[in-house]
Amino acid sequence: MKKPTVGLRLQIWVIKPNGKKRLVRNRWSRSFVQQWIDIWYSHFRNSVSGFTVKRTSGATAGNYYPHAIDTTSPVGVYENSDSMGIVVGSGLAPVDISDYKLQTQILHGSTSGKLFHCKCMAGIAVEESTRKMFDFNRTFMNVSGYDISVSEVGVYARETNSTYYYCFIRDVVGPIVVPSMGGIAVNYGFELSL
């Protein structure tokens, strides 16, 4: 009998300078990390008393209630934020359950070593008789003038109504070369099935 699934599919495309896309990774995401479990513990017990969740800054003190944990970009200042949503990096260290950030994050920008972060967006939920799916995705454009190597991807969530960020997911995928004047598109597909 097939075991029920709660997981994330990971797909990555490289965008060539001519705009054509090539699928370079298509597999299950390997890792929710510690903060995912810790946030849900706080949610389920409806309390943060005596318990903290580690932020991407490394700080753990003074935890707020973990309100809605948003991974998509709200309009305005967060649209191009490298603090929340799908993020990318150049680190190759294997995933550890205690990871609380990418090893070496590639920041938003258009200068050397940076990728321009487009808005992190959610797709429409797809429902079948034994499977439910929903995607969220982000495109990163390389306008730095140099090729950039992406080796890790992940998801940072923002605590609603605060500026605290948590790493939920980290995957080591690289290296993947993002050509100058090209880009990389990352899609995480949440899937629940019986």
């Binding site: 948003d70 991974t71 998509t72 970009s73 709200p74 959610a122 969530a157 609603t160 949440f190």
Partner: peptide
Amino acid sequence: IACWTANN
């Protein structure tokens, strides 16, 4: 979905 897309 509601949690992850709260602002949208």
